[in-house]
Measured scan of single mutants.
Amino acid sequence: MGSVRTNRYSIVSSEEDGMKLATMAVANGFGNGKSKVHTRQQCRSRFVKKDGHCNVQFINVGEKGQRYLADIFTTCVDIRWRWMLVIFCLAFVLSWLFFGCVFWLIALLHGDLDTDYKDDDDKSKVSKACVSEVNSFTAAFLFSIETQTTIGYGFRCVTDECPIAVFMVVFQSIVGCIIDAFIIGAVMAKMAKPKKRNETLVFSHNAVIAMRDGKLCLMWRVGNLRKSHLVEAHVRAQLLKSRITSEGEYIPLDQIDINVGFDSGIDRIFLVSPITIVHEIDEDSPLYDLSKQDIDNADFEIVVILEGMVEATAMTTQCRSSYLANEILWGHRYEPVLFEEKHYYKVDYSRFHKTYEVPNTPLCSARDLAEKKYILSNANSFCYENEVALTSKEEEEDSENGVPESTSTDSPPGIDLHNQASVPLEPRPLRRESEIGSRR
């Protein structure tokens, strides 16, 4: 089982795998120059863009038009607004034209077009017409509009002379109601789609790998820009990579689940303020055997998904993003964004995407760390350097704002901070800030 798991979770494809794949392509008759073999020097295209759209195009789909027309309502909801407006206008105009032609044909076959009612006051002739005051196609078209929109100006009306005319008036009224219901329903469904809710759900630009509770963890940050909550919010993550099976089958995008606390339930989050999602790199993680150097040379993509129900409509929305291997910062942490004021908490989104480097973060893999092949620094050293990194950030910001350097908390000259780390230190809580992250 261990060997199978290692093969499945191998992220960085070796040169031997690339040569094996190329040999397979030639042997199977696919070596026509169009096949692409992804190596370390040639990274694959992003499968999920940063804005959440999937970078996929469908080609050679059989009976595409028929399949889309069979699900016309979903098609109308998914198309762009400009095409929705075109369909909206065409549906009414074509129905008016169709029934206008029908009423014109009825008048033509009944002989109503030969009668001039402007110079004739004989009401008996008017009563013999199928539709009064309809003696041309324009008049028939206007009567069709008046019937379907129930305008009723009063000059044109159907008589009991022709039952077919009466039937067409009733039929057009029913068709008009159906068109109204369909168009209004599609427009309302399109307006109520929770897709735009994703514009106020954000992911951090970069993911980070750092120590948390004595273990290497992959972390990324999510935030909600609205005050309205995302009900039943939960997160998922998958690692996408290519691999070759033991039988020699090439899988271009193998999807591997990344555990973010599904078993323990901590994948469900209360997204009021930005939260750091934590994936513990343990023996079940696809990143277990990867060191910093392996991450730098790897070719994979981590897709992160945030799902929840919109509070206003109770409709489920899904926000997506992805991180390539070069977008994962090893040995970094996110800057705090949640600050405790006197009577409330304040979230500073200008710090949302910012990170700071944490010294002495192990550069080895989580496996080597678990097997004690890498000796961690003293816990006080880690905490102290973590505090120094934050303090230096604040000093830089104070210097930019014009604060005198004498007010900063610099260490005395001639003292090495790293050498001082081995000395037991008193706890130094942050002056006014605390970061709330997901705790395992």
Rank of each mutant, 00 (worst) to 15 (best):
N259M: 11
S204H: 02
L239P: 01
I11G: 15
D78Q: 15
D120R: 00
H234L: 03
M84I: 07
N60L: 04
Y384N: 14
G308D: 04
D289P: 08
E357M: 07
D119N: 02
M188Y: 05
G100L: 01
T6S: 14
F58Q: 14
V131K: 02
L329M: 11
S422W: 09
N380L: 03
G52F: 01
I269L: 12
R221H: 01
G265S: 11
Y334S: 00
T409H: 06
V403D: 12
K227Y: 09
T147K: 02
V4Y: 05
S392T: 12
S132G: 06
D78R: 15
V303L: 11
I174K: 01
K36C: 12
I164E: 13
G18A: 05
S381L: 05
H229Q: 10
Q238L: 07
A27I: 07
F262K: 05
I87G: 15
K193E: 08
G331S: 04
S322Q: 00
E371K: 07
R5D: 15
F155P: 14
P194A: 07
E387M: 01
Y117I: 02
Y349G: 09
F92M: 12
C217Q: 11
H343G: 09
N419A: 13
W104F: 05
Y68P: 09
E283V: 11
I178E: 02
S173L: 15
L113A: 10
A186V: 10
W220T: 08
E385A: 07
S132I: 10
R40C: 04
F99D: 00
L201I: 12
W220P: 01
M188G: 15
I11R: 03
C54Q: 09
I251E: 15
E396C: 08
N55V: 03
D263A: 06
Q293P: 12
E327F: 01
S127H: 06
E426C: 06
D299I: 04
K241E: 06
T407E: 12
K195W: 10
C101F: 06
K64F: 08
D120Q: 00
G265D: 03
L271D: 05
S273A: 08
A181H: 11
A379P: 10
S434G: 13
R212I: 04
G402H: 09
M315Q: 12
F92L: 14
C217K: 09
L425H: 06
L85D: 02
V403K: 06
S204R: 00
A189Y: 13
L94E: 01
D51H: 11
C157P: 04
D257N: 10
S411N: 12
S95C: 15
L94W: 02
H38M: 10
K346E: 04
A91Q: 13
G18F: 06
I72T: 15
T317D: 08
I79K: 09
S127N: 08
G152D: 01
R156F: 02
F382L: 13
H205D: 15
F270T: 09
I151F: 04
P274Y: 07
E435H: 06
A233Y: 10
A233P: 12
Q293R: 07
F262I: 14
D160G: 04
V303E: 02
K64W: 04
S422D: 11
S242W: 13
K241D: 07
F47K: 06
K342E: 04
A165N: 01
H279C: 00
T159G: 01
N401P: 10
P362K: 02
N401A: 12
N360P: 00
R367H: 11
N60Y: 05
S434V: 11
V126S: 07
L85M: 06
K64D: 05
V170R: 01
A139V: 00
L108D: 12
S136I: 02
Y68S: 14
L329K: 09
R268T: 11
P274R: 02
Q420R: 07
G152H: 05
E327Q: 04
S132V: 03
L105Y: 04
I59W: 11
C76W: 10
G308T: 10
I281W: 01
V134E: 00
T150W: 04
S127V: 15
M188W: 03
V304A: 08
V61C: 14
D267H: 06
I106C: 05
E307A: 05
E335G: 03
H353S: 10
T313E: 12
S422H: 08
T313M: 11
T147F: 02
V235D: 02
P163H: 11
A389M: 13
V93I: 12
W83Y: 14
D294L: 03
D282F: 03
V337N: 04
V278Y: 10
R82I: 14
I251W: 13
E307K: 03
W96M: 10
D296W: 04
P362M: 02
S242A: 12
I59F: 14
W330H: 02
Q41K: 03
E341H: 08
L417V: 13
P362F: 01
V303H: 13
P413Y: 09
E327M: 01
N401I: 11
V235Y: 00
L376M: 05
C364R: 02
K64I: 11
L329F: 04
F352Q: 01
L97W: 00
T74H: 12
L97I: 05
K190F: 08
V347A: 15
H279P: 00
V48T: 08
E311C: 10
I281G: 01
A314K: 06
F270A: 10
C383K: 09
K49T: 04
E249W: 05
P286M: 01
R428Y: 13
I266K: 12
K393N: 10
F382Y: 05
K36N: 04
W81H: 05
T391Y: 11
H234Q: 09
L253E: 14
G18Q: 07
I184S: 04
I106R: 01
E311Q: 08
R333D: 15
E247I: 04
L97Q: 02
F47M: 13
S392A: 14
G2D: 07
C157A: 14
R236A: 09
V134G: 01
A298C: 08
V423S: 12
F262H: 05
F88T: 10
F47H: 08
F182A: 02
L108Y: 09
L417F: 08
I244F: 12
Q41N: 11
H353K: 00
R5G: 14
A325M: 03
A314W: 11
I258T: 00
V231I: 08
P252V: 14
I72D: 13
R428F: 12
T138Q: 05
L430D: 13
E199F: 06
A139R: 00
F88Q: 06
S45N: 14
M188A: 15
D294K: 03
C89A: 06
N135M: 09
F99E: 00
R212N: 14
D410I: 06
M84F: 12
S322C: 03
S127F: 12
F58G: 12
M168Y: 03
P424V: 13
K346P: 00
S406Y: 08
I145S: 03
M168D: 00
F171A: 04
M191C: 10
V37A: 11
W83T: 09
M188C: 13
L109K: 15
R268G: 05
R243E: 06
F88N: 07
V93M: 05
N28G: 13
C130D: 02
L105I: 06
C76Y: 05
A192W: 09
Q41W: 05
Y374E: 15
I258N: 00
Y68N: 11
W83S: 10
G265M: 12
H353C: 05
P412D: 15
K292Q: 11
D416G: 08
E396T: 10
F92V: 14
K342C: 05
Q238A: 12
S365R: 01
L369H: 05
R351K: 10
E307P: 01
A189V: 15
P163F: 07
I281Q: 02
S10E: 10
A312F: 04
Y323Q: 01
Q42A: 09
Q318I: 10
L338Y: 13
Q66W: 15
S377A: 12
D416Y: 05
V231H: 12
N380P: 09
P412Y: 07
N259P: 09
E426L: 05
E133A: 05
E426M: 07
T74W: 03
H332L: 01
C43Q: 09
Q41V: 09
S45A: 09
F143T: 04
S3H: 05
R320A: 10
G152A: 03
F143W: 03
F382I: 12
F47E: 02
M168T: 10
E311A: 13
Q172K: 02
P404F: 09
G52Y: 00
A210P: 00
N55P: 09
L97P: 00
E301A: 01
G29Y: 03
L109C: 13
E357K: 04
G62P: 14
E161N: 10
I295Q: 01
S124F: 06
I11M: 13
G176R: 03
Q148K: 03
G154R: 07
D71K: 14
M211S: 11
G100D: 01
S365Q: 01
L338I: 14
A312R: 12
E133K: 04
I178M: 15
F167C: 14
